[in-house]
């Protein structure tokens, strides 16, 4: 395999225990050549951040499936800044809000929370891979 791509922390935030997508994301990112650090389901913001600190991650991919993603993601960017993760990329995907809402609105709200990218339901992880390569000039 060619040289390793940067480290990405992945996991499912909050009280959310949907595990299947998380495993799939781990497999695909690893196959693509990224170093993957998986904090798993039911993870707090602090767990994502601590993992990113120790592993020198360049991005955090947060999954939220159960509909409470917005609440769970509030304050994440501020905590990253507090911890010295100034340039870390924050992406979020899954079913990040309850029901079917206009995604443009949803996206705006997540951008204002400090997320670099937010994905509508059903977006495959490949979209994230494409974008991280753009955002990190890989």
């Amino acid at each position: 395999m060619e040289i390793k791509l940067p480290t990405i922390v992945i996991g499912v935030i909050g009280a959310d225990c949907h595990a299947v997508g998380n495993k799939i994301i781990e497999t695909i990112l690893t196959e693509e050549g990224f170093s993957v650090v998986n904090v798993g389901v039911l993870s707090t913001q602090e767990e994502f951040i601590n993992a990113a600190l120790e592993t020198d991650a360049k991005a955090i991919f947060i999954s939220s499936l159960y509909g409470h993603g917005e609440m769970d993601c509030e304050g994440m960017r501020e905590k990253c800044q507090e911890a010295g993760l100034d340039d870390i990329l924050l992406y979020v995907g899954g079913n990040i809000v309850v029901g079917k809402q206009g995604f443009e609105e949803v996206e705006k709200r997540f951008v204002s929370l400090g997320f670099n990218r937010a994905y509508p339901p059903g977006t495959p992880i490949h979209a994230g891979i494409r974008d991280i390569k753009i955002d990190l000039n890989l």
Binding site: K4, T7, S35, V37, E54, T55, D56, A57
Partner: peptide, 10 residues
């Protein structure tokens, strides 16, 4: 100590 293998060096 500090950092996982391949992780934070700074």
């Amino acid at each position: 100590s500090g950092g996982t293998d391949g992780g934070n060096k700074k």
